[in-house]
Simulated assay, not measured.
Amino acid sequence: MSQLLVLHNSLNPENSASRAMTEAYLAQVRAADPAVRVIERDLAADPLPHLPPAILPAMFGQTVQPGPEAQAAALSDRLIAELEQADVIVLGAPLYNFTIPSTLKAWLDYVVRSGRTFRYTEAGPEGLLPPGKRVLVFTASGGVYSQGPAAALDHLVPYLQAVLGMIGLTQVEVVRAEGMALPEAQQARAQAITQAARLAA
């Protein structure tokens, strides 16, 4: 039985293209394997707190004291455990102001942790997560950022590839629903949803 970790981040779930892509993928996965275990976090509806100062010892591999330090570290430990146990990580990541939503950034801040999910070596950072995990990024944007004059403004895909790679998540696949503010939005949305669903095969 496989296990999925799904993170929703759209502030507009009723009309969200990224969420529609995620739901289409999940529907196909569940149809193929009814026993699949799915952990879902709606980070838009239930956002994580930003990192508190009390978490600093845990982030630097120091001894964590009881109280606020232990509470902050416990949340990080729980989120990392979900990540470690997942075979597939699904990120619903709409493009906000040329980059990821702040809710997703908060999650990343808790799981990118020195000595726990990566370590520094003489050759540079080394990811510590178990190998073989698959990451699916379902992103949507009002304009077109995968190519053309706005491509330089896409700080979502390159950033996610870099930060996920740092902790050992190198199998990153991206499906884009682009041009959601353009006349051909409905066609682009439908194509992206179909593409996302096919990844479950």
Results as ranks from 00 to 15, higher is better:
residue 123 A to L: 05
residue 125 P to V: 04
residue 126 E to H: 12
residue 126 E to K: 11
residue 127 G to T: 04
residue 127 G to D: 02
residue 127 G to R: 06
residue 127 G to H: 09
residue 128 L to A: 06
residue 128 L to I: 09
residue 128 L to D: 01
residue 128 L to W: 05
residue 129 L to H: 02
residue 130 P to E: 11
residue 130 P to Q: 13
residue 131 P to E: 14
residue 132 G to A: 13
residue 133 K to G: 14
residue 133 K to W: 12
residue 133 K to R: 14
residue 134 R to Q: 13
residue 135 V to M: 07
residue 135 V to I: 12
residue 135 V to D: 04
residue 136 L to A: 10
residue 136 L to P: 07
residue 136 L to M: 09
residue 136 L to C: 06
residue 137 V to E: 03
residue 137 V to L: 08
residue 137 V to G: 04
residue 138 F to T: 06
residue 139 T to F: 08
residue 140 A to R: 02
residue 140 A to I: 01
residue 140 A to K: 02
residue 141 S to K: 10
residue 141 S to H: 10
residue 141 S to W: 07
residue 142 G to Y: 14
residue 142 G to R: 14
residue 143 G to D: 08
residue 143 G to F: 12
residue 144 V to Y: 11
residue 144 V to F: 14
residue 145 Y to E: 01
residue 145 Y to A: 00
residue 146 S to N: 13
residue 147 Q to L: 10
residue 147 Q to I: 03
residue 147 Q to A: 15
residue 148 G to S: 04
residue 148 G to P: 02
residue 148 G to E: 00
residue 149 P to H: 07
residue 149 P to Q: 11
residue 150 A to F: 15
residue 150 A to L: 15
residue 151 A to S: 15
residue 151 A to Y: 02
residue 151 A to I: 05
residue 151 A to T: 03
residue 152 A to Q: 15
residue 152 A to E: 13
residue 152 A to H: 14
residue 154 D to Q: 01
residue 154 D to R: 01
residue 155 H to A: 10
residue 155 H to T: 03
residue 155 H to D: 00
residue 158 P to N: 10
residue 158 P to L: 04
residue 158 P to D: 04
residue 158 P to M: 06
residue 158 P to F: 04
residue 160 L to V: 00
residue 161 Q to N: 14
residue 161 Q to G: 10
